[in-house]
Design a protein around this nucleic acid. Structure first.
Lengths: 206, 206
DNA sequence: TGTTCTACTTACTGGTCGTTCAGTAGACTA
DNA sequence: TAGTCTACTGAACGACCAGTAAGTAGAACA
């Protein structure tokens, strides 16, 4: 689901390149948005990257904002799915928290460009604000797990719960800014490291 | 230095509002850049926020990119200053690391809008690339402290040094996205919490 | 009183933006 | 073979962009 789906080989009246489908257009658009920022990416350079004309894009989507909406919906749908799985709903609160954080890292790595776009939103348009609202809902669900784990005594309670959640997400979300799949660190190892640092800290255990 | 300097009350030929100086223009520009993104902020809306015309801005700066350059230079100068202080150059490596991290949080809070702008750069223009290069130099200096502390045995060595540094910065830099001065958490408390979570983790000590 | 300086003003330029429109090549269908 | 569909092309639209040119109100200075 993260990669370009092959376009059908027939139906394209033009010679040369195969026809684009929506998924292929979206992949290239998201990459361009991440490189230059959504607003700074013109439909013209998008068309250039696709090797077509500006107006060809309007055959696949209704406009620039539609591209953004589709991309953000994909990232959010994947993240929201994590909360519905058994590991997120059953067992001790701290285990559920670990499960959700690991799931967040997994989605982040699997759909890296899409989640990157999501995490860089500023909320200037209605589309962006609605995406930010869905993201906040996810954050709230995690904050509730933090609260539970604090009540259970498995998480330290001397630091404000909101601050705790925010620092946790700060660490995890920063992954989009430096992690690149295919490097020396596997996604599994990355998730292990993140959870280990978050729960046990960087100091050598005494 | 973080607030609007009072403009001189004379010398403005116009009626009404006092004259702007460079610092006042910069404060408003940085706020606008953070709200909408640098490229998406037009000189027109900037002029509206200032209550003047577009061309009035060109009396104070040579252009839009000049505003960015001045703003980024201020943020970077403050951050670089932290590395030159005694606490960053003398004593055990882990103490120096703690000092620099605390200093980074302090600068981040003191010049929040300016550092926010810096941390959201994408590197599309030469000005942005030069700023990112200076930021990387700071990151490298902190990475060197992490290496030293690992060698001393005060920092755990089972996690890759680069990953450690990146997660550390991820947590600290995320502060610009949610912390607002004047709220229930003082800057000092924030720095304490960040360093405590980073070194000791969120789990209750066993 | 006349000159100079500061901090603007209004009017405009060439260029780029997202979007629309009319047309069409080639594959598929009846 | 005629008609329909998909996936485009190229030209044009008005709105907006960063930046410029020329002029000026009022304070400071000689």
């Amino acid at each position: 689901m993260a990669q370009t789906a092959p376009a059908r080989s027939t139906g394209n009246g033009r010679t040369g390149r195969e026809a684009y489908d929506l998924s292929a257009v979206l992949n290239i658009a998201v990459a361009a948005f991440n490189d230059h920022g959504y607003e700074a990416t013109s439909m013209g350079v998008l068309a250039q990257r696709l090797g077509t004309s500006k107006s060809a894009i309007y055959y696949h989507v209704s406009g620039k904002e539609d591209l953004l909406r589709l991309a953000l919906d994909r990232a959010l749908s994947e993240i929201e799915l994590v909360l519905t799985r058994d590991g997120a709903t059953q067992g001790p609160a701290d285990d559920r928290l670990r499960f959700v954080l690991r799931g967040a890292v997994d989605v982040l790595v699997k759909d890296l460009p899409y989640v990157t776009l999501l995490l860089r939103l500023r909320g200037n348009t209605e589309v962006e604000r609605q995406a930010l609202a869905r993201r906040r809902d996810f954050d709230r669900a995690v904050a509730a797990l933090v609260d539970e784990a604090r009540a259970d005594g498995t998480l330290r309670a001397d630091i404000d719960a909101r601050t705790t959640t925010r620092l946790l997400f700060g660490m995890i979300n920063s992954i989009v800014e430096w992690y690149r799949p295919g490097g020396p660190i596997t996604p599994e190892r990355l998730a292990d490291d993140v959870i280990s640092v978050a729960f046990d800290g960087l100091a050598t255990s005494r």
